[in-house]
Structure formats: structure tokens, C-alpha cells
Amino acid sequence: MQMLPADAPAPEAFTDYFHVYEVDVDDDEEVRYYGEPLASQETVVQRLAPAFRERGYRVRVERRLGEHVLVAERRSPGVDGVPWTNVALFVATVVTTLLAGAGWYGIPITEQPWRAVEAWPFTVSVLGVLAIHELGHYVMSRYHDVEASLPYFIPVPTLLGTLGAVIRMNDHIPSRRALFDIGVAGPLAGLVATVVVTAVGVSLPPIEAGAMVGGAGATTAATQVQLGYPPLIQLVAWGVGQPLTYAEPGVMVNPVVVGGWVGAFVTFLNLLPVGQLDGAHVTRALVGDALSTVQKLVPAALFGLAGYLYVFEGGQAVGIWILWGFIALAFGRVGGVTPLDTSPVGRGRWLLGILTLVLGVLSFTPVPIVVGV
């Protein structure tokens, strides 16, 4: 049996849950305890993770070559070195959102591709709300000493130029309070950004949907797409005394408002209480294992919404909610996060959670987008 690192728990400390007959150390970064679990793998991890976490390790149980292995890896909550993957994806997403923004502004990039940079306000608005949402999660992860990556942006050549951004958490969540704080921080930060971006966007000059910047005769994305604005966006526009639609034919709201629309739409979807979404984290932190009952209702509600739109709204946006119904089904099967300490959260977090869910409802509209109008 190899000598353990000084800070690694000795096998004798957890004989009630895992019987160890061999230990292997890999460059002092990973300690592998070979043996037999004396309870289910989930129970072993839940019971042993707090002790390992105190010593700077995260732990999991695997089966390698027919043997059970309790694997302890050193935790590294900070960012080591330059996150080149994150940087490359961000740069790529800047490019795809500039190209998408050019479509919204009607910039003729086919003839003059360098003019895509003129769509920078669109890129700043869309990436800004996404980045602030994910950085909300990241900041609270660091606050609770949970290992999390910087945001990974997803570049896709669509009308928006991106499918959003995510952070990766490869760590145990120490408590329901930490789970709540990390889960709620993203939507709340994103909503603040959504309100600011929307207020700025509606205050900027509108565009002519049939004309292009610096020329004439081009068709903008705004002529092919109709956005459905949720109550939150409508309230912000009303609050600053600016319209979201114009009586003049062909006049459209400034594309910066699209960033606010993205923020609201992403917030609503993320607050669905299923799987690994923010809404599931918040709901589990508040009601514990009752989440399993709640998330069974979500796919039914989404499919029901699709059915309503098909029957009463001419099928508008049906595909969106059918897709998300299946996504909710899949996420529900994957399962969510189980915090190590299951002590209930306090009254203050309950009130904040209810407020967040209400804001999520205000970010919902049954027909968020119609293409080909």
C-alpha cells in the first residue's frame, strides 16, 4: 500500500462505508482507494464527501477492471492558467453574433463582410446578458468554494449567433443554502442585465426594416422575424416611455432590444424546475426531494402549451414548446444536484426564491418568436 499524501484521509476514517484493501497515489493529485463499498455508491459519496472536502478533495466511486474504486481528486476552485477553450469559444461567438447582428441591421456583409463590425451593439447586448447571467453563477460558486469553470459560449450561425453560454461545475455542493445561492444568482444577475439592455435598446433610434445601414434595398432579419415580448420587457419599455412597436410601416425597434429579449427568454427557460437547470437548483434548495414530483409536471405543461397554441393560435411556436417538452423529459431523467448538507434554507431565501420565480413568469410569453412573418 502506497504512502498517502499528508492531507488525504486515512482508510481507517471511513471503514463504516468503504472497506479499503489497496491505495494508489497518482502524482499526489489523485488518490485511489480500492475496496468494497458497504452501502450504495450514492450513500458512500454523500457520507464521505464532507470529510474529503475539508481536506481539499472531491470524491466519487467508480468501477475499474472489475474493482470498486473510491477516487479522491484535489479540488481547484480557482482558474489555473489561461482558459484557452473559453477564450476561443468567446471569440467565435463574437464573430457569429456580429454576423447575426448584421442581418438585424441590414448590413450588406455579402458584398462588404468587414462591415459586420458595425453590428457591435447587437453583439454587446446579446453576449452581455448571457455573460452576466453565467458570471452570477460563477461568483457565487467561488463564494461557496465550489469548483466552477468560466463561461463557455456556444457559437452557432443562427438569427442570434449563439445558443447561449454555460459554466461547468465539477464539485460537490456543500449545502442547500449554497445550492440556492448558486442557482438563483444567474437568473437574478441576468434579469438586471436584461432590464438595463432593454431600457437602452428602446431608447435608441429605431431602424427601417427594409433598408440597410449606409444603403438601400436590403432585407433585415427584422422583416423575417417577429418577436413576442414578455411582460417584463413590456414593463421596462413602458417605464422609460418608449414603444416596442411603431405605427410607421417598416420601422422596427433597435436590434439592441433583442439582447433584452434573449435575457428574458433564457431566464424563463433556465427557471424551469428540471434536471440541472437553475430552476431545479432553486426548487430543490427550497423543497428538497419534492423536486422529483414538481419536475414530472413540467413536460406535461409544455406539451399542453404546444397543444393550446396548435388549436387556438394557428400553431405558432408549437415547435419550440414540443422541443422543450422533450428536453424537460430528458433532463428529468438525468437527475439534479444533491447537496451534502440537507438542512433547510431560511425564510429570507424562501422569499427571494419566490420573487425569482415570479420574475421568471414575467419573462414568459407563449409565442416568443415567429419566423417568416
Rank of each mutant, 00 (worst) to 15 (best):
G215V: 14
S175D: 15
T293A: 15
G250A: 06
A211D: 14
G241V: 03
L302T: 05
G201E: 03
G288I: 06
A222W: 11
T219P: 12
R177P: 02
D181C: 06
Y246L: 12
L302D: 05
V298M: 06
S175E: 11
V196G: 14
L297K: 07
T223Q: 15
P273V: 04
E248D: 13
L277P: 02
F268E: 00
V197N: 04
Q234I: 10
L297W: 09
P255C: 11
L235A: 15
G217N: 15
L227G: 07
P273Y: 02
N254G: 06
E248Y: 07
S292M: 05
G215C: 11
L272K: 00
T220C: 06
A237V: 12
V257R: 04
Y310F: 15
P174D: 00
A209W: 06
S292L: 07
P206G: 13
V253N: 00
V240P: 01
A185T: 01
G263T: 01
G214P: 07
F268K: 04
G275R: 01
A199R: 02
G186T: 10
G259I: 09
L277R: 04
P243F: 01
A300C: 03
W261F: 11
T245F: 10
G275S: 01
Y310I: 12
F265H: 02
P299W: 01
R177M: 03
L305I: 07
G259C: 10
K296L: 11
A285N: 09
H281G: 05
G259R: 06
E313P: 11
A247H: 12
V236S: 02
V287H: 03
Q226F: 15
G239D: 14
A222L: 14
Y229D: 05
L227S: 09
G210Y: 10
F303C: 05
G183T: 08
L302C: 07
G314V: 04
Y310S: 14
G314H: 06
G186E: 14
L309T: 13
P249D: 09
D278L: 02
G190I: 10
V253L: 04
S292D: 15
A237C: 10
G190E: 09
M252V: 10
P243C: 04
V287D: 03
E313G: 11
G214N: 11
L204K: 09
G288V: 05
V287K: 04
V192M: 11
Q226L: 14
P255F: 08
G250S: 07
G210P: 10
P273I: 03
S292G: 07
G288A: 12
T220P: 06
G279Y: 02
G214F: 12
Q276M: 14
L291I: 07
V196N: 12
A306Q: 05
V236D: 02
T293G: 15
E313F: 13
